[in-house]
Amino acid sequence: MIEIKDIAKSFNGRQILKGVSSTFETGHVNLVIGGSGSGKTVLMKCMVGLVEIDTGEIKYDDKIFSNLDRKERKPFRQEIGMVFQGGALFDSLNVEKNVMFPLNMFTSMSFEEKRDRVNFCLKHVNLVNVNHLTPSELSGGMKKRVAIARAIAPNPKYLFCDEPNSGLDPQTSIVIDNLIKDITEEFNITTIVNTHDMNSVLEIGDKILFVHKWEKWWEGTIEDILKTDNKELNDFIFASKLAKNIKKTGLI
């Protein structure tokens, strides 16, 4: 479980996060939604320690992550997997070496064990016979899947995905969403996904945190979303005419 309390962050005097608090449960897909520039990526970067918070507290299970220094965070980081918006695969390494990278760095596994683990992870993301390909030879969807495989390779307890569907076609987006959901449940991971893909919200969101104007605007489940009268949230979720009509007719 990850708990954040009153997180605030500003850059050059401009407030980007204003006292955001929430709890993200283990074994669930927790979605952070919000428009572009709402502060959700900064929130995620704060949670993983890429950006230091000004005030507040970030707790991973029973440990206060935000109080730890760089050295103390190191063992923690090995329990965190992250899928970046663009995949962030290492260009100079092929798929196999990319997925093997965290294992090379932090485990004493033999090469055969590592290769088995890589193949296991790649199979989980529905990729086979791609070990030798370089990132430049992969499609957008394949890159995302390799990034997920790399993130889960060291058996993380916490998985962060920053807009995993951006730039993907609807069908591939669904594949990625289902993959995240399955992995979360199978390995009992605490998963946090930043997204503004409404399909993801409706398909895989166990819990949803809506960030608007740099603060927590709304929080609830998918059932709550369909019933809420929160104007900003409804405007965001049901932005298109089609979505508005679907909500009106009660087809969801």
């Binding site: 970067k45 993983v48 890429l50 965070r73 190191k74 063992p75 923690f76 980081r77 090995q78 965190i80 997997g81 992250m82 970046f84 918006q85 663009g86 962030a88 695969l89 290492f90 260009d91 990278f101 965290p102 760095m105 932090f106 060291p154």
Partner: peptide, 12 residues
């Protein structure tokens, strides 16, 4: 391209 962030996340 966030590859440096990816290294940091891994604890490197």
């Amino acid at each position: 391209t966030e590859q440096v962030d990816a290294l940091e996340i891994m604890g490197i």
